[in-house]
């Protein structure tokens, strides 16, 4: 058992799957000689060669689009898009094409493809890089959207993604890439999709988040504890499939809920969570469910991003209001 960062856990997962199955290959910008801009693929080209670790031209749509053909030819591509914001330039190949291929071919061509991309702000990256656009992909109903928040899940969920017979968009929490280490087993293991994780147990209120927002919820829960408010933190882990059962169970227990995400408020995935909870757990609610999200503006310049992103202070405020409602 080693103490790994998320970056190292991701690398361990890819390394293991490439050693295990020679059909697995990686492609993307700078994934080879540089080892990826975040070094998630460091050392892999030396080990597996250029055929299996391919530095592509700078063109996101063809990185995703060619992965579709590579999968049809019999390979298992793991494509890297440098930042989730760059999938703006591959959007039609992701949702419409990759996501629909099993369906549009009536089962003739299922696509075992993983697309990895880091998401989120807080690291002062340039414009467009940090856009949290995960909800856009949920509207393409045949692609799995999963988002680990810690090293253990990163490794187990990535192995699960690579082995999944269907396409998976694997969104990584960029801000947490190297923030802290956690115990990660040396051997291969999988974390199944559609099972949320209780990151912290609590009695009075449920804080629901995913990706880096889970960390924000955990900070808020620690502060709330000082005020005697016991907050449960639920890490959704995957948006598709969605673990409705765990969301409902937690809210039935606490009766109160705040949903936190980095995407702008309107039509963010939080709206889906709230709508689902009012359908499934309305009579257990003691207060309206609150949402803490980024504001409905374009992503601001780096010097202002911390005012814009959901902070633990805003989550604490929302939780207090909800508890006192």
């Amino acid at each position: 058992m080693a103490q790994l960062t998320i970056i190292e856990a991701i690398r361990a997962a890819i390394l293991h799957e490439m050693e295990e199955d020679e059909r697995v290959m990686i492609l993307g910008l700078d994934v080879g000689r540089l080892g990826g801009v975040f070094r998630t693929t460091d050392g892999l080209i030396e080990k597996f060669g250029r055929k299996r670790v391919f530095d592509t031209p700078l063109a996101e749509a063809s990185i995703i689009g060619s992965s579709i053909g590579l999968a049809i030819s019999g390979l298992i591509p793991v494509a890297e898009i440098q930042f989730l914001g760059f999938t703006h330039q591959a959007f039609h190949q992701l949702g419409q094409q990759l996501g629909r291929y099993r369906y549009r071919s009536r089962g003739r061509f299922p696509l075992q493809v993983t697309v990895r991309a880091p998401m989120g702000g807080g690291t002062k990256t340039p414009e467009f890089h940090p856009d949290a656009i995960e909800a856009q992909f949920v509207q393409s109903p045949a692609i799995k959207v999963v988002m680990p928040s810690n090293p253990y899940d990163a490794k187990g969920m990535l192995i699960e993604a690579i082995r999944d017979p269907d396409p998976v968009l694997f969104i990584e929490p960029e801000r947490l890439y190297r923030k802290g280490r956690a115990e990660v087993p040396d051997e291969a293991y999988t974390v199944p999709f559609g099972k949320a994780r209780v990151a912290r147990e609590g009695e009075h209120i449920t804080l629901i988040g995913w990706s880096a927002a889970v960390e924000v919820c955990e900070h808020a829960a620690a502060k709330l504890a000082e005020e005697g408010i016991s907050a449960e933190v639920l890490d959704l882990r995957s948006l598709v499939p969605l673990d409705i059962e765990s969301m409902v169970a937690s809210v039935v227990k606490t009766g109160r809920c705040v949903v936190v995400h980095e995407a702008p408020l309107s039509a963010g995935f939080g709206a889906e969570v709230v709508a689902t909870l009012q359908e499934e757990a309305f009579y257990s609610l003691d207060a309206p469910i609150a949402r803490v999200a980024s504001y409905d503006t374009p992503y601001p310049p780096a010097t202002m991003e911390n005012l814009w992103l959901p902070s633990s202070a805003r989550v604490v405020n929302a939780a207090r209001k909800t508890v006192n409602a």
């Binding site: 299996r52 063809s62 689009g65 060619s66 053909g69 590579l70 049809i72 030819s73």
Partner: peptide, 17 residues
């Protein structure tokens, strides 16, 4: 034109293997 990168990936995959 969405089929074109699929075709390239398919041809490239045949070549790799």
């Amino acid at each position: 034109a969405a089929q074109l990168p699929h075709a390239v990936g398919l041809a490239w995959g045949l070549q790799i293997q």
